[in-house]
């Protein structure tokens, strides 16, 4: 996704001189296409994320569209108050690009995981959160949102090969994307774990369960109407996200279900325990956290058994 993001950014920057790219000294073998093409519009600000957000605020106020780039926790958590008091409070078009949502930096451990970023950002009115599920959707999402008013947080991944079957690069603001239609249950996924949801739906098919799969990439503000039109058709919704239980997609769906009184049982596949004391690949961490296809299948069948009659 990050290569797709940077390539698309280069294309946009060719058309619009307001686009700048700032990095806090990260993005090796990713950001070079922009840095090489636009050396005067690229700034490595050093390992200093707070300052990067402050500088971006000053730049955006003067008419630029600065993209600031780092790994998720350094892009979001470290400078969070600068984001709040800068681009959010001043309603400025700063674009925060966090690479590595979820467990993409698997072996690097918790310091590099992005497992609460969506929850943190969702607390703030006045910022959009976009979390594409694959590199094709990343391209479309960036093209649709790069010049919207106010700040945007892009939660992207490193994988530029895997695609979510059926997604075909679709993205619209405030909309969810249906990647596989179904009748019995809906599985909603966020981010690069989405292929596991699709794979789970295929396995459920073999067991006689017809699961719909949707991708929620325009995640904040909540795509309420679009989500409701799906949720109203199903007795059970299973959410899948490489994110803590609180604040992410599962929380969002719970809020939408509760406020609209939709008779839909919710089951959440999310990170429930502090991921410390063990390292491993993204796949390993997904399995350990109950986010792999087998775990999603189990959770879906359980939910259908206990709550499907709602």
């Amino acid at each position: 996704m990050r290569a797709a993001f940077i390539q698309t950014l280069v294309e946009l920057a060719t058309q619009d001189e307001r686009i700048l790219l700032l990095t806090a000294d990260l993005g090796y073998l990713a950001i070079e296409p922009f840095a090489d093409r636009f050396p005067d519009r690229f700034f490595n600000v050093g390992v200093a994320e707070d300052n990067m957000l402050g500088v971006a605020t000053g730049l955006a106020d003067s008419g630029f569209i600065p993209f600031v780039y780092s790994i998720v926790p350094f892009a979001v958590l470290r400078p969070f108050e600068f984001i709040r008091n800068g681009p959010i409070m001043h309603r400025l078009p700063v674009r925060i690009v966090g690479v590595g949502g979820g467990f993409e930096y698997g072996h690097n451990g918790l310091t590099h995981f992005g497992v609460e970023d969506v929850g943190v950002m969702r607390t703030q009115p006045g910022i959009r959160v976009v979390a594409p599920a694959d590199h094709e959707q990343t391209r479309t999402a960036l093209r649709r949102t790069w010049d919207v008013a106010g700040p945007v947080y892009y939660r992207i991944g490193k994988d530029d090969r895997t695609v979510v079957t059926g997604l075909a690069g679709q993205f619209e603001l405030d909309e969810v994307q249906t990647v596989r239609p179904g009748r019995d249950v809906v599985i909603a996924a966020m981010g690069s774990v989405a292929p596991e949801a699709v794979a789970a739906a295929e396995q459920l098919r073999e067991q006689g369960v017809d699961a719909e799969v949707i991708v929620v990439a325009s995640i904040h503000p909540a795509p309420e109407q679009s989500l409701l039109s799906v949720l109203r058709r199903f007795p059970v919704c299973v959410t899948v996200e490489a994110h803590y239980l609180s604040g992410g997609l599962g929380s969002l769906v719970a809020e939408v279900i509760a406020e609209a009184s939709v008779p839909c049982r919710l089951a959440r596949c999310a990170v429930r325990e502090l991921p410390i004391g063990v390292t491993g690949s993204q796949r390993f961490m997904h399995e350990r956290s109950g986010l792999d296809r087998a775990a999603i299948v189990r959770r879906t069948l359980e939910a259908l058994k206990t709550g499907g009659k709602a």
Binding site: N51, V55, G58, L59, H90
Partner: peptide
Amino acid sequence: ATGSLGQGLSIGAGAALS
């Protein structure tokens, strides 16, 4: 807008770079 100490100089640096 200000009020949180330690943020003004970064914003000023961005404004100066602009």
